[in-house]
Computed example of a mutant assay.
Amino acid sequence: MKPIVAIGDVHGLEKWRSIVDEHEDCTIVFLGDYLDPYEYITRRQQLDNLRDIIELKKRRMDDVVLLLGNHDLHYFCDRALPGSRYDFQIERFAEAMFNANIELFQYAYQQGNRIFTHAGIQHSWFVDDFKGDLTQPIAHQLNNPESIQFNAMLRLGHARGGRIGKIGGIFWADISELTDPLHGYTQIVGHNRVDDITERCGYNDNKIIFCDCLRNGKYYYEE
């Protein structure tokens, strides 16, 4: 298997370009959130940047993975709650771009016991809320949810403004909620801003690696 690179939340930044150029022999996983920048980036630049990421995927279908985040879903999914910095001036362009290329995106990616999602999977959320099957491939279940399971995937936990006692789904889970990541797996996620790649290990052969630090030029790499 190829070495793997995971690029955290893009949010309009172009730093991914040099990372991709440096790792042409790797599988590249984008962890989602392509729009809604924290800093000033023109709307044209944001959309062009997303378009270039989509074109990269089309050129390298077998070794580029595009995951979706909460800042992507809210532009084209009526069931997704709008996140911060939602931009009404680009919504119709973003919606059209995502819908025209929706087959290129996915919710989760898995290589063996490594699982990539936008925000991460708390073990109790997968078992109790998503009603997943721990004996079956995890990413396949997340990429092919039943309607009620998709509701759980879209859920906000209490840490992000949801109901008390609730844990966020794979688009919204907060770092404070991911205290016991999915047992038996190593997860690589974005969504929660960190200054550098940050690991959290559990007691059930479980680990979660937070990678939302592209703004600092940092990314996940594993041979």
Rank of each mutant, 00 (worst) to 15 (best):
G69W: 00
D87Y: 04
H118D: 07
E95T: 07
E91M: 13
N70G: 13
F105G: 09
N70P: 12
Y75A: 12
A108V: 03
V65T: 10
Q111T: 08
F116V: 02
E91L: 09
A100G: 15
D63M: 11
V65L: 08
Q110F: 02
F105W: 06
F116M: 03
H71G: 11
M61K: 15
I115H: 01
G83P: 09
D78L: 10
G69D: 06
F93Y: 12
Y86P: 08
N99Q: 14
M97G: 11
H71V: 07
Y86K: 11
N99W: 00
R92W: 09
T117E: 02
N113E: 06
D63R: 11
H74D: 15
L66Q: 05
E91A: 14
V64G: 08
M61E: 14
I102G: 05
N101G: 09
M97Y: 02
D87I: 10
M61L: 15
L66K: 01
I115C: 09
K58G: 06
K58H: 01
N99D: 06
Q110H: 03
S84M: 07
M61Q: 15
L68F: 07
Q111N: 11
Q111C: 07
E103G: 06
K58E: 09
F93M: 13
P82D: 00
A94F: 07
D72R: 07
Q111H: 00
F116R: 02
Q111P: 00
A94Q: 11
R85A: 13
R92H: 13
L104V: 01
L81V: 09
G112P: 10
N99L: 15
D62H: 12
F76W: 11
Y75G: 12
L68P: 13
V65M: 10
G112H: 02
D62L: 11
A108N: 03
N70K: 10
L67A: 01
A100M: 09
D62M: 11
A80T: 08
D72L: 10
L67I: 03
A100K: 04
I115D: 05
S84V: 09
E103L: 05
L66H: 00
P82K: 10
T117H: 00
D78Y: 00
E91R: 14
V65R: 01
R92I: 10
D87K: 10
Q106W: 00
R59D: 12
L68Y: 05
Y75C: 12
R79C: 08
L104Q: 08
L73M: 14
A80Q: 08
Q111W: 00
M61A: 15
V64N: 06
L73A: 05
F93P: 01
L67F: 02
G83D: 01
D62Y: 06
F98M: 02
R79Y: 04
F76P: 05
R92N: 14
L104S: 07
F98N: 02
F76S: 02
H118F: 03
D62E: 15
V64A: 08
L104C: 09
E95F: 04
E103R: 07
R60W: 05
L104R: 02
K58L: 10
R59G: 13
S84L: 09
M61P: 13
L81K: 13
A96W: 06
Q106T: 10
Y107Q: 02
I115Q: 04
A108G: 10
N99I: 09
G69C: 08
D87L: 13
